[in-house]
Design a protein around this nucleic acid. Structure first.
Length: 460
DNA sequence: CTAGGGATATAT
DNA sequence: ATATATCCCTAG
């Protein structure tokens, strides 16, 4: 074992010297080395290491942390295209697009990069049904690009012939993307107008020149550059907000909120019992672990600086033993949960006894002191939080795993049967709402399809 | 433990 | 009064 670790560290140093300047993720790097050198025999472990790497990549991308870890993994063939889930592709594309837009300085952006940017956006919303809001983005970026091209033309930075070429690249005639056709129409008119009235050689003020061309002016008034770019950014961020957060990030945020200790989370294939097990699974020492996963995240950083003395230590204390004895920890966690369960059970037993004695004595008469015999629990409505927890829990564990959900999430004195009943209610109410909405919708398509005129654009 | 039926308090 | 949400009971 020790020999292995020695070898590993030596090789680590080598690779670090080779790849250089990337000490951001030493542990990820170590996993890469292990994978590349086939030091891992078990297939499961091998698989988990890959997935761990993917999760780290996902986390870094989600957190906006610049790191070429993902690219390195690809180029070094640590994982293949087939290992990468579509969602991660999309996150990467999104990060690329956002980064590009953040760097744009109107009026001129790097036009040569725009096709790639546009392609990325199209890829995202074609593969993710939640990305509908991005549908207008390709046409908007195309327009931004064309405005940039106009300026370059005005400054004689590009040849007249390139004007049409850029138009065909940024807003292709054959594009089936929404809004592209109409955007192209405007830009085509503007291009022709520009070619008819080319700038004098000495024109330096592109704004002045462009404002003399009505067709260009129309575009500029309809799509003011700054506001358009802001709008694009806003759409991108909105999508980013709505898209799923990375597994690791979720776990850590939950951990900071103090509810993760017993909350299992769904690793791509394996369930880890707690945050400590992630560390074990990642085979990291706690300081590396923290620097990678805790240190880089703004929320986590803030947390650490605010509460440094206590929590930081407890974090370490909790994490250190993990590598040696995950089982013992699970037991400890269970022990923490146990008292509550015991209490509840005891209460129940008392009730049962009371019930029994009551029914036995019931042959004798008199329900007298029924304050106690009203053993039926007082009705307490599910709080918003409890309901939310239940929904999350079902997402995580699936329907029917009420006990697991009960243990993993915070509920106020509920039993698994309560959760089951609550879920039944939730589903019932969903069905009711659907019935109300769906029925009227069903009848429409048939009649409409046949009744609609084939074209309603005859005015054109 | 979970699923499902049923009773009952509470909301509309 | 009816519908709904919660609680209870029991079988498997």
């Amino acid at each position: 074992m020790r020999e292995k670790t020695k070898k590993r560290t030596i090789k680590n140093m080598n690779t670090q010297n080779n790849t250089m300047n990337d000490d951001k993720c030493p542990s990820a790097r170590r996993i890469i080395d292990q994978l590349k050198q086939n030091q891992i025999d078990e297939i499961n472990l091998y698989d988990n290491h890959k997935k761990t790497l993917l999760s780290i990549c996902e986390y870094l991308i989600d957190s906006g942390i610049n790191s070429d870890l993902f690219e390195q993994c690809l180029t070094q063939q640590v994982f293949m295209e087939s290992d990468i889930p579509q969602s991660l592709h999309n996150k990467r594309s999104l990060a690329f697009v956002i980064q590009f837009l953040e760097c744009v300085e109107p009026p001129c952006c790097e036009v040569e990069n725009l096709p790639k940017v546009i392609a990325n956006v199209i890829q995202i919303y074609c593969s993710d049904s939640n990305a509908e809001i991005l549908k207008t983005v390709p046409s908007l970026i195309g327009i931004v690009g064309m405005i940039s091209v106009f300026h370059m033309f005005a400054r004689s930075q590009i040849q007249p012939s390139e004007l049409n070429r850029e138009l065909n690249i940024l807003l292709p005639a054959a594009s089936e993307q929404p809004y592209v056709a109409s955007s192209r129409k405007y830009c085509l008119a503007a291009t022709e107008a520009l070619l008819k009235a080319p700038p004098k050689d000495e024109t330096t003020d592109s704004f002045k020149y462009l404002s003399t061309i009505p067709d260009v002016q129309y575009i500029l008034s309809r799509y003011p550059l700054d506001r358009t770019i802001d709008h694009i950014k806003q759409l991108l961020y909105q999508y980013k907000e709505s898209s799923i957060q990375s597994t690791l990030r979720d776990v850590f945020y939950g951990y900071l909120d103090g509810r993760v200790v017993s909350k299992p989370f769904s690793w791509p294939t394996t369930d880890f019992i707690s945050i400590k097990e992630i560390q074990t699974a990642m085979n990291l020492d706690s300081s590396t672990f923290q620097s990678i996963v805790l240190g880089e995240d703004p929320k986590v950083k803030e947390f650490l600086t605010q509460q440094q003395p206590e929590t930081f230590e407890t974090l370490q204390n909790q994490q250190l033993p993990a590598s040696t004895q995950p089982l013992a920890q699970q037991q400890r966690q269970l022990m923490q949960v146990q008292p509550k369960i015991k209490q509840e059970k005891e209460e129940r037993n008392i009730k049962k006894k009371a019930l029994n004695s009551k029914s036995q004595d019931a042959t004798k008469p008199k329900m007298e002191d029924d304050e106690h015999s009203k053993l039926k629990k007082k009705k307490r409505r599910f709080s918003e939080e409890e309901t939310q927890n239940l929904i999350e829990g079902v997402q995580q564990f699936g329907i029917g795993h009420w006990k697991s959900i009960l243990n993993a999430y915070k509920f106020d004195g509920r039993s698994c049967v309560d959760l089951k009943d609550k879920w039944r209610n939730i589903e019932n109410s969903r069905n009711r709402i659907n019935k109300q909405k769906v029925q009227p919708q069903v009848s429409q398509p048939h009649s409409n399809a046949s009744m609609l005129p084939p074209f309603n654009s005859d005015n054109f």
